[in-house]
Design a protein around this nucleic acid. Structure first.
Lengths: 200, 200
DNA sequence: GTCAAGTCGAACACCACTGTTCGAGTTATT
DNA sequence: AATAACTCGAACAGTGGTGTTCGACTTGAC
């Protein structure tokens, strides 16, 4: 009795393969077009539409699964970032990694916001949010980051600047290779305590 | 032969009234729900759906007209802001006024982005953008704002922080009365030249 | 008072998508 | 080799929008 993976318990091998293919195809399709249809996704997965509905009861639940999958992958990457040492440098490293994820999953996020029940997106973002919050809190205690604005606001600013960068790239006003540096520079300045000097 | 208003040239008086009512209703409906249907808008305007299509050939063209209308109103408000004197204080004033507009027309912008041809939104934003750019350029020359990031990026940051603030309010994490202050504080810090001190 | 301009609701055609059912065929598992 | 699990395409019903047509009616303009 082989150990089954969570979520695919008891499924036959070919079914598990198809589920994985659907998940991958959905990530890809929704990454291009947040309004991608189930037909489109099924076709991209090399699978019949009926099969898709056999594994996911509705478009919304498929989207949820895709989102959970993406978050898990992201958490894995983010978990390897060294958050110790100087808070400013740690934040730079975290931004660098986060940015790649935001860039990749931008369109997927829009899809999720359009179809998932309100609050679900935030719910799934709880872990990555906590990571950022914790770092910011530490930075504040050590005097590296400002304390005159709520932590949640600072987290939001970081989030929005990153997503804004994706828009700028889309519009062709920023080249992808420069985005991370722009974001880091901007955020470090925004987080600097009033009266302190903005880092070089 | 009375002088006719632009856009309603030659229309009868009741038709002009209806066009205005549709425009207002559309602004209101799309401000609540970016996906508001033509039926919904027609009903809110106290007008038959056929009448609506009699004045606007398609949903997209109606949306365009609504957007143009909103921009014009915004431009009028923004035009009265005093942009002379200390660039930081001028920017604070501009943010204060811009924020009210962003807050009011947030949902409308989403609707426009979803249905108008790509680039059209930016096209219509050209004037307000130019106003911000001009102020930033002046601030840079006088040493008040940083020069190590492109002006277009700084404009984008301001834009995104404001829209992010609207999200925070939606999520209940920020109260509307504090938003303007948070935005101003954040942007002034982000715009501070490296090596300079962040204002109080 | 005349007449064109405008309005209205009902009905229609159309489209794209979601989710389901059916029956026949295929494939993993034992 | 037997069987249960799985897959597939085609077809269906349902939904919710867009845009059009029709014919009867009302209202503004001159």
């Amino acid at each position: 009795m082989p150990v089954k993976q969570a979520g695919t318990t008891g499924k036959r091998a070919d079914a598990q393969r198809n589920i994985a293919a659907i998940l991958d195809a959905a990530t890809e399709c929704l990454g291009r077009d947040p309004a991608a249809s189930t037909s489109e996704i099924a076709k991209a997965a090399g699978v019949g539409r009926v099969t898709l509905y056999g594994h996911f009861p509705s478009r919304a639940e498929l989207l949820d699964a895709v989102f959970v999958h993406a978050i898990e992958g992201g958490e894995e990457a983010l978990g390897q970032v060294d958050l110790s040492g100087d808070p400013r440098e740690a934040l730079s490293r975290l931004i660098e990694s986060s940015w790649h994820l935001v860039d990749r999953y931008r369109s997927l996020l829009i899809a999720a916001q359009n179809t998932l029940p309100p609050g679900r997106v935030r719910e799934l973002h709880a872990d990555p949010m906590a990571r950022v919050e914790k770092l910011i809190e530490r930075g504040r205690k050590q005097g590296a980051f400002r304390k005159d604005l709520p932590t949640s606001w600072l987290v939001g600013v970081m989030h929005n600047v990153m997503h804004g960068a994706a828009d700028e790239i889309n519009a062709g006003r920023v080249t992808p290779d420069k985005a991370a540096a722009y974001i880091t520079t901007t955020i470090l300045a925004a987080f600097t305590p009033p009266g302190d000097r903005v880092p070089n």
